[in-house]
């Protein structure tokens, strides 16, 4: 029952501070004056990354040059030197895979060497973590409406991804209804409505501040009555370290999963620029809403999104789609090999 102590510790901290502050005892911590003058600019030379003229992931992969070439140039060997390993580590860390994954790869290389070349070995090790099932389901039980629920922190691209997936479903011959479940952020429903217009989808929306659960509920009712094939439900962006906000999300999911609705996919949208925090985002959203897959957005930028490797390996949540732009067609199905290559092409 560690929980008890944690709660108590937090309470004591809070209480102590309040009490101390009320007593007006204030002591400013004395910090030693800085000794060495600090340069204004810490790093003047940024390790150069390729300037990409094309935003297409596939095309970019074909032309990728960079640090990984250094890895490629390392010759096959049963025994890697510490310098060689350091290059590998740098490439990996720069892709945001995180220390755990980087260390695991180095460990593998140390014990097994790289008889077919370092690049091939690293590639293979990373790929072995990306073995999840990436199929998506648009089918619900007889008489129920399939629902895809989109969750994630603020600004990662949930609403945009819904637009893109609405198009995709539409192209697959399904009639799509969007549920404007973000009733919190200003003009969120207007934003989704524009995507509905662009993709020929229906939309159910409510006023700002309305209960998100009831918007989703209404959408499912409407879909069931009018024969829509699938409901894509937006939710408000929320930080992953708030029990209240996650509870609210669990509630929305429960409502969406009640007949005639059936949640067949809960897609966590992750921004590729995110660092190690993405792992705790995935943990928390998984616990709160039973995430079935990840959409990794903004891979058209300079960020690599390597943290999804740890997420897929440790939490077993597969990446299903990748966002590569702001347009309605800028979404591709996740391909592990392509991804690993792009990861290593910095």
């Amino acid at each position: 029952m560690i929980a008890l102590y944690i709660v108590l510790a937090i309470v004591v901290v809070a209480a102590l501070v309040i009490v101390v502050r009320r007593r007006g005892r204030r002591r400013v911590p004395q910090l030693a004056p800085p000794r060495a003058a600090m340069p204004e600019v810490l790093v003047t030379e940024v390790t150069s990354m390729p300037s990409l003229t094309t935003v297409r992931l596939e095309e970019r992969l074909a032309t990728s040059r960079g640090v990984f070439d250094r890895v490629r140039s390392l010759s096959p060997s049963d025994h890697l030197s510490e310098e060689q390993l350091a290059v590998v580590e740098e490439v990996l860390l720069r892709s945001d895979v995180g220390l755990t994954t980087a260390n695991a790869v180095l460990e593998e290389l140390r014990s097994h060497g790289a008889p077919d070349g370092v690049a091939a070995a690293v590639r293979e090790i990373l790929l072995s973590s990306l073995s999840g099932d990436r199929t998506t389901s648009a089918e619900a039980d007889e008489g129920r409406v399939p629902v895809w629920l989109f969750v994630g922190v603020n600004g990662v691209g949930k609403t945009t991804t819904i637009g893109k997936l609405a198009k995709r479903n539409h192209d697959a011959g399904r009639s799509v209804l969007l549920a404007a479940g973000d009733t919190f952020r200003a003009a969120a429903a207007d934003q989704l409505e524009q995507w509905a217009t662009r993709t020929d989808s229906g939309i159910v929306r409510a006023n700002e501040g309305a209960d998100p659960g009831s918007v989703v509920h209404d959408a499912i009712g409407r879909a069931s009555a009018k024969g829509f094939d699938i409901v894509l439900a937006d939710t408000a962006g929320r930080r992953a370290n708030s029990t209240n906000l996650l509870d609210e999300l669990s509630k929305v999911r429960r409502v969406a999963d009640r007949a005639p609705g059936q949640v067949v996919e809960t897609l966590l949208v992750l921004d590729a620029t995110t660092g190690q925090n993405a792992l705790s985002q995935a943990q928390e959203f998984l616990a709160a809403s039973g995430v079935t897959g990840i959409v990794l957005t903004k891979l058209d930028g300079t960020a690599r999104g390597g943290i999804v490797i740890a997420i897929e390996r440790d939490l077993g949540v597969p990446v299903k789609f990748v966002g590569v732009g702001e347009g309605v067609d800028d979404l591709i199905v996740f391909d592990p090999e392509e991804f690993v290559d792009s990861l290593l092409s910095t």
Binding site: R94, D96, N241, N277, T302, R304
Partner: peptide
């Protein structure tokens, strides 16, 4: 919550716009 890309991004925007400073968001995240 940005990862390694922060440098690339900050540098590019600074080159383009000669920034006077930064505004950091989402510090309520963990």
């Amino acid at each position: 919550v940005t990862g390694q890309d922060a440098v690339q991004t900050a540098r590019a925007f600074h080159d383009a716009l000669s920034l006077s400073g930064l505004v950091v968001t989402k510090l309520d995240y963990d």
